[in-house]
Design a protein around this nucleic acid. Structure first.
Length: 672
DNA sequence: ACGGATCACACA
DNA sequence: TTGTGTGAT
């Protein structure tokens, strides 16, 4: 249920924008295939059944009668010339990465002019208050001779005009009114800023978007879609009352579902205006104190929700549904799909770690299921979570265990015996895994190093602690100096602009983490080998571990993360001496910036001198494609193992190898 | 037997 | 905290 935000104590008038990309998935595909621009186009996923489901429709196609909620076949029927583009598929499921990344591009442009909140893959809120105030002080619109063309095309809510030309003329005059009140002048500034931003998005990312500009999030969101595509709408506070009066209650954000229905059926409220008849107390009595106040406020256009300064998602999820007859009925099929989902999830959290220096702490498995027998007493399949350990194999293992725990609970004690391999009674209609509790790591303190350091800590391992203390000293000093040299590489936790792919796109794609298996049926987690086509990485891997290398390392291996309550990074950054295994084992998996942190003062890498320990490796879990990036002597060493593994009778046994050069690239498996 | 795949958030 | 439910795109 929605909740009333206390009006911020600082009650100065805010300028809020809501920016909405027009039929975003279509635009992403049209940027990839410019010949589709201007043509009726739609994006579909899963083409097998009735031509797939439309998830985005271009405005040209809409004009020709195509709407969302249509199947691909229906669209072809009403509009034979429509171009249908399929969502990419990886690991047998829809892969939305290209859209997520394109959305991040836009966010990083929009974030330049104020606090920015990524509301969804194609929507953003902006708090432009500061920028608008600055503009009003320095270059107020009334002082301009002419208004930027894009801003001139703004729609001013409540401003009446006869024809289209008249509208532009009126809007232009409204924006420059010298007799406007302070609020409206700020709004005009906001409109100019948003118009500018939208032009930048178009120029730099080649996407059009629409926007709403108002004094709060609710109003900005309400109008951002009023004039689409590629237009913007401004809400002067003088027009709010009239606007809301006749607005159907279900159009309000948060009232599109059961709560809105309850307002209609229980209270006879069909428009926002109808809500005005109820006192705050009455609404609180009916809907609770928070929701009641919230309703009373929104009926009057009051909404104190702040724009959260958040450019990155708070969780990552990978899921797939198995409708009707496709329901999963064996443990083996569930495990297969869980493995696919976990592989994608691992790739995404590793990408997040590498790009944004964030670590996910919780793994959750969700499922929905039906029971064919015992069909009454419908039960929900319970979701289960546990601490998240990095690495495909670990996530797969944990996810499977979580699923089995859920299944046992779902079936209940009578069915426990039949939990086995043959189908009985139950079917899984959807599966998903997600990574949450993602925390940013402060930069420049060596805390990434220390974090993973701790993850490897085993209570039994009492190493020579004094050497670690010395090393950590080296870490901090090195890191500090590095930060001063490269201030732009600093991560601002509250304004962490995602740097989309830039370091990646320059690389050979076979080396980037974004390589994806197009083959969904594959069972193994190992991606295709880079096939001698020149991998990005040179010989001297030690000093220049590329991000691609790191990513692939993480993709295939384990950063174990057994501590459940590890959110407090400050704790990690504290002064207690590291309690665990050696430092250099983390080198290969740290992002480039942090490699600097583990240099010692003389600039050379600080390798463990206690070279006596043996290390465990699970060869099965080594990503083959990483091999080509390693120094040649190590490549040879690994190929020997891999060949040995392929011979029958020698598989599955974890190899024990003496710590040597290879230890710089692979960290030890945890003893379990 | 189809809105699929993701997200956020309030509440218990 | 973990898990559930709602609502959104």
């Amino acid at each position: 249920m929605p909740v009333a935000r206390p009006e911020s104590s600082d009650s100065r008038t805010r300028i809020i924008a809501h920016v909405d990309l027009d039929c975003f998935y279509v635009q992403v595909e049209q940027r990839k295939q410019p010949e589709l621009r201007g043509l009726p186009t739609a994006v579909v996923q899963y083409n097998e059944w009735k031509g797939g489901a439309l998830i985005a429709v271009s405005y040209e196609a809409r004009k020709l009668g195509v709407s969302r909620h249509m199947r691909g076949d229906d669209a072809k029927e009403v509009c034979p010339q429509i171009h249908l583009v399929q969502v990419p598929v990886a690991r047998g499921k829809a892969d939305l990465n290209i859209y997520r990344n394109a959305g991040s591009e836009v966010v990083s442009i929009l974030a330049r002019k104020g606090r920015c909140e990524r509301a969804s893959i194609d929507e953003v809120y902006l708090d432009l208050t500061d920028s608008a105030e600055a503009m009003l002080r320095e270059t107020p619109p009334e002082s301009l001779e002419s208004i930027n063309e894009e801003a001139r095309k703004s729609h001013i809510l409540g401003l009446k005009s006869e024809d289209a030309n008249d509208a532009q003329e009126n809007a232009s005059k409204w924006l420059r009114r010298s007799d406007a009140n302070h609020q409206d002048k700020l709004l005009a500034c906001g409109a100019l800023i948003v118009a500018e931003l939208r032009m930048e998005v178009l120029k730099e990312a080649q996407f059009t978007c629409s926007a709403g500009v108002a004094h709060n999030k609710m109003l900005a969101k309400l109008v951002s879609g009023m004039n689409k595509p590629a237009q913007q709408t401004v809400v002067p506070s003088s027009s709010v009352k009239r606007f809301l009066e006749s607005l159907p209650i279900k159009k309000m954000k948060q009232l599109g579902g059961k709560l809105g229905t309850s307002l209609q059926t229980d209270l006879g409220v069909n428009t926002v205006g109808d809500l005005l008849r109820f006192s705050e107390e009455k609404l609180q009595e009916r809907f609770g104190i928070n929701t009641g106040t919230w309703l009373w406020n929104i009926a009057r256009g009051i909404n104190g929700e702040e724009v959260q300064g958040r450019l990155l998602p708070k969780s990552h999820g990978a899921g797939k549904s198995f409708p009707g007859p496709r329901a999963l009925k064996t443990i083996a099929s569930v495990q297969h799909w869980l493995n696919q989902l976990c592989d994608e999830l691992n790739e995404r959290i590793c990408f997040d770690l590498d790009q944004n220096k964030r670590i996910a702490h919780t793994l959750t498995v969700y499922a929905s299921a039906y029971k064919s027998c015992d069909s009454e007493s419908y039960k929900k399949f319970p979701s289960k979570s546990c601490p998240l350990r990095y690495g495909t194999a670990k996530i797969q293992e944990d996810a499977f265990n979580l699923f089995q725990a859920g299944l046992r609970e779902y079936i209940g004690s009578p069915g426990v015996k039949t939990l086995g391999h043959h189908h009985n009674g139950w079917g899984i209609t959807s599966l998903s895994v997600s990574a949450s509790k993602i925390v940013a790591i402060p930069s420049g303190t060596g805390s990434i190093t220390k974090y993973f350091h701790e993850q490897y800590a085993s209570p039994s391992s009492k190493e020579t602690q004094d050497t670690f203390v010395k090393k950590d000293h080296a870490i901090i000093t090195a890191s500090e100096s590095y930060s001063e040299l490269e201030p732009t590489d600093q991560l601002q936790p509250d304004n962490n602009v995602p740097c989309v792919g830039i370091p990646w796109k320059e690389q050979d794609s076979s080396c980037s983490s974004t390589v994806q298996t197009k083959d969904g049926s594959g069972k193994g987690a190992s991606p295709p080998l880079p096939s001698g086509s020149g991998c990005c990485s040179p010989v001297n891997q030690t000093a220049s571990a590329s991000r691609g290398t790191i990513l692939k390392f993480l993709k295939s291996y384990n950063l174990s993360c057994p501590t459940p309550n590890q959110q407090n990074v400050e704790m990690v950054k504290g002064s207690q001496p590291p309690s665990c295994s050696s430092l250099e084992e983390n080198q290969a998996l740290l992002p480039r910036r942090n490699l600097a942190e583990i240099r010692s003062n003389d600039g050379s890498y600080n390798l463990d001198q206690n070279a006596q320990r043996a290390w465990n490796y699970k060869i099965d879990e080594i990503d083959h494609s990483i091999v080509d990036e390693l120094p040649s002597e190590i490549q040879d060493e690994i190929r020997v193992w891999l060949q040995a593994r392929q011979q029958p009778g020698m598989v599955k046994r974890p190899s024990i190898i003496k710590r040597g050069s290879i230890a710089h690239y692979f960290s030890p498996a945890r003893n379990t």
